[in-house]
Nucleic acid binder design. Structure first.
Lengths: 158, 158
DNA sequence: GATGAAACTGCTCCAAG
DNA sequence: CTTGGAGCAGTTTCATC
């Protein structure tokens, strides 16, 4: 694990919100000259800490859609059961995120789709496909309250 | 709502994964010359469809941390109760995302923090602060299975 | 929509302190 | 780490078709 100083963290937190900032502007913002700042960024990218860049897209300005969270419980807990379900999840673009959970529930996943109807089609695919899904619970999102980035501030003291 | 053709969607989906692509390279990828592609992007940004750009940061390569999902139920459902809770959520950087839900539960939120201990401190802050939080349930994430972007493919036929 | 070009800014690398 | 700069690539805005 690469050790990072406060400047590296500042570079990361600037890039997190301003991914298309120019490298010379970035250097100014962290009080470094061009060259060493560029070298730091190279290191961060090479180490895989910066995994890439992306546009933040306002889906709500683009098309009608619904966001739904689903908790899932599997039929069985043998080693193959988990990877079978996870493969099914990977193959569904409407499942935008999925996490394995400790405790009674096995998975939580987030669906973004056109409507409740297309969500039901997705669930039907999961139930009739050989995914091992036993029980699920649907939570429809009525409002996105917050969606920020990872709080790098918390790790400042490393 | 701005109407977008297939090229606009392609621009968006390229930018979603390659946020730092050069504008001339982007133009090539969508089979347009420099100028009209640049104009489309200007429109998309001006319309707020592209809300910004950000680096994808691999937190796991950076520091030990835990991800936890929490479902929350509020004491009361008067108009002020929701905004009071949402304000508290906004003020906590460790709460990286929060959604209001239909049905019995009021909110789902995602916490990224250093440890289970710091998570408990967060919960204590929410409980002792005047947030109206009545009942909550903790789901510790043991594995991130998938974390992709919004599936623009789904909206191709618009 | 396409093309070409002008003026500018930024990028990458290198040298020297 | 700094400054300075060379050579090249990318950006933005033109005018023209």
């Amino acid at each position: 694990m690469l050790k990072l100083d406060a400047r590296d963290l500042k570079i990361l937190s600037i890039l997190q919100t301003e991914g298309r900032i120019s490298k010379s502007e970035l250097a100014k913002r962290v009080n470094l000259s061009n060259t060493p700042c560029w070298e730091r960024l190279q290191r961060l990218e090479a180490a895989g800490i910066v995994r890439g860049y992306g546009a933040r897209i306002a889906l709500e300005a683009l098309a009608e859609h619904v966001t739904i969270f689903v908790t899932a419980e599997l039929e069985n807990h043998r080693s193959g059961d988990f990877s079978r379900f996870e493969d099914a999840v990977s193959g569904e673009p409407e499942i935008v995120a999925c996490w394995a959970l400790g405790g009674g529930l096995d998975y939580l996943f987030q669906v973004v789709t056109r409507s409740v109807g297309t969500y039901q089609l997705l669930i039907d695919r999961l139930l009739t496909g050989d995914t091992g899904l036993k029980r699920y619970f649907t939570y429809i999102v009525t409002k996105e309250v917050k969606n920020g980035g990872v709080p790098l501030e918390i790790f400042k003291s490393l």
